[in-house]
Nucleic acid binder design. Structure first.
Lengths: 357, 357
DNA sequence: CTGAAAGCGCTTACAG
DNA sequence: CTGAAAGCGCTTACAG
């Protein structure tokens, strides 16, 4: 078996009796290279199946054309969709993505950041791991003047470009919708409160209750880590639901900060013969594909994940093109869209949405 | 704003009054460097926050430590899980993954391959796009002596390492299970027959019928592209089901080569008041998360996706370590596991699996 | 229109 | 134990 033999610019130059400089320029379509040499070079390139060595170019140019993307976990539809959005935008400008998973753990997140910096990425697009409470590692990126864009979960005090959801508004609208449907005792499955998105969702919930003159019942607010493991969170959602319904006073609505916990709740309610949405209406968050699969369909908040990715990509490109702008970082805020399904359509059970999410 | 200033080995050398050679050796823990210099180097590395430049190392060593991974689409749980498996195995050996999506299209697949080769990946792990019928581009990888490992969808005549499912056996077992449950008229939602996995699934279906003395009804075999877009395939599954049930003779079982088509079928059957599994039993393929969400739960075939990824990673590492072995490529075949849920439990409706997939 | 030369940051065979 | 030198494959300012 022959060695991995790769044709180089030098090989082409030798064959054509010119210098590597000329070949390089021909390949880059430099204006002051004659058409005849360009043609000769191109022909030979085809014939020898020459592949430029990006690594060498990267070293020479100080630009790798890599963007590091950190996702807390790629097992979820949410993040896969964000990646698609990023890719669509940056691929056109010749960037390749290096995707890393932090698994929601701070130490993995830090390892990812170090690895990406060593690879000399031109920028990092990240969503902060749930466990992370302190952002010095992200400051490390900034200090090395590597463009950083955060999406969905942004560090509150980091002065960087970001694209996030208006979680407060989403929660507020969801709970208001439940109230409009006639719910008066609405429970909330909350996430860990050191994470901004979950704090915002809780606040949206609280303010919607207040603004509608409803009382807040502390026992109806259940905080948990809303872990991403689908098997576990389904069971956890069911357990929280069963706990809720062992109270003397029970809710007639649940707003869950996670779709999966809400799915577990639906399963638990059904197996206890509690009718949805008539006795209890539910709303989840994220509009995962499975919320259109379950019956009754789960009302949820679509976070425009692909759009989120595309915006993150755009912010990155802007920052690359005009590095000074970073002194005035932008935060793009997307308003989540309430996708209403059967789980919250108490009165007007008109068209049940079956085949689209 | 200061330039992106990166400390280099040369900087450290100058500061310590030694040569870059020494610093490089110290960093690589070379045995013939004194402990004192090593210590001095390490201290300065910490202090200056030195990050080795992997790009330079890659160029010098002719080894990038990148592995290119091509997935037909990362929107699906299936592939996300494979990636996890690969990553877990190869990360330990210092490899980073570059993930590309072909979106099931041959031209994107080819672009991905070219991009990966230019980036000088040390190997490529890929699953062939559905549209691809001819494998010259994969031969290009092989001709450049870049290790290639295929997973799930392998080119039939490509002589490379691969890890695949025993789709024939999985289908055979699924259909046999339906027959054991009492089904005698079993329909099949088939995929495109130029793709080996779908051909194998069809053959497993056919042979199971034959071996159990059941007749084959051509009108019960419906071929389609089983497109990955969840919204579309749900509707398509429903439509195929409605067509089936407009025939004079209707099936009492459906074996679908795709989970999503089966989900669509369940929705259609339910809205037509046809009871599952009593009147029609169903089995899907892939054991997507959503098959445990729908009610009744969809029986499906688990493909051990993470294990598939881990095996692909291992095959790659083996090949890197002993390049000669590739003359005798290995094919690891995983047996899919039938995960039985309510959709196929006609008689023995014992324990309904609710919170685990 | 093309060439000669230097350099991106690292590593390693050769020498001492 | 350490240094001087060459080179990985490319690009580009300088020169002609």
């Amino acid at each position: 078996m022959s060695e991995r033999k790769k044709t180089t610019i030098t090989d082409i130059a030798r064959e054509l009796d010119v210098t590597p400089s000329t070949v390089s320029r021909a390949l880059n379509n430099h204006p002051r290279i004659s058409d005849s040499t360009k043609k000769a070079v191109w022909n030979l390139v085809k014939k020898l199946n020459y592949q430029p060595n990006n690594i060498a170019t990267a070293l020479r140019n100080g630009k790798s054309n890599f963007i590091g993307v950190i996702v807390p976990t790629s097992d979820r539809y949410f993040f896969a969709s964000v990646i698609r959005g990023i890719e669509e935008v940056v691929r056109e400008e010749g960037y390749n993505l290096i995707i890393c998973q932090s698994d929601e753990q701070t130490n993995k997140e830090q390892k990812n950041i170090d690895a990406l910096l060593q690879i000399q990425v031109d920028g990092i697009i990240a969503s902060v791991a749930k466990a992370t409470t302190e952002f010095s590692y992200f400051e490390k990126i900034i200090n090395q003047n590597v463009p950083l864009v955060l999406y969905d979960r942004a560090g509150e005090n980091l002065n960087v470009n970001s694209v996030v959801c208006d979680d407060y508004r989403g929660a507020y609208n969801a709970v208001s919708h439940l109230i409009e449907q006639g719910c008066t005792n609405i429970a909330h499955f909350a996430g860990q409160q050191h994470i901004k998105i979950y704090k915002d969702r809780l606040n949206g919930y609280l303010d919607a209750l207040k603004d509608h003159g409803l009382e807040i019942n502390e026992r109806f607010i259940i905080e948990s880590d809303l872990i991403n493991d689908t098997d576990i969170i389904l069971g956890a959602g069911a357990k929280m639901t069963n706990n809720l319904f062992s109270l003397s006073e029970t809710p007639d609505g649940i707003f869950s900060a996670s779709d999966f916990a809400a799915l577990g709740a639906i399963k638990a309610l059904k197996s206890n013969g509690i009718s949805i949405p008539d006795e209890v209406a539910l709303i989840g968050f994220s509009n995962d594909f499975s919320s259109s699969v379950i019956e009754p369909g789960l009302t949820s908040l679509d976070q425009h994940t692909k759009k989120m990715g595309m915006n993150a990509g755009k912010l990155f490109l802007e920052q690359i093109k005009d590095p000074k702008k970073i002194n005035h970082p932008k935060s793009i805020v997307l308003e989540p869209k309430l996708v209403i399904r059967e789980s919250s359509s108490i009165k007007k059970n008109t068209t049940s949405e079956v085949f689209s999410s």
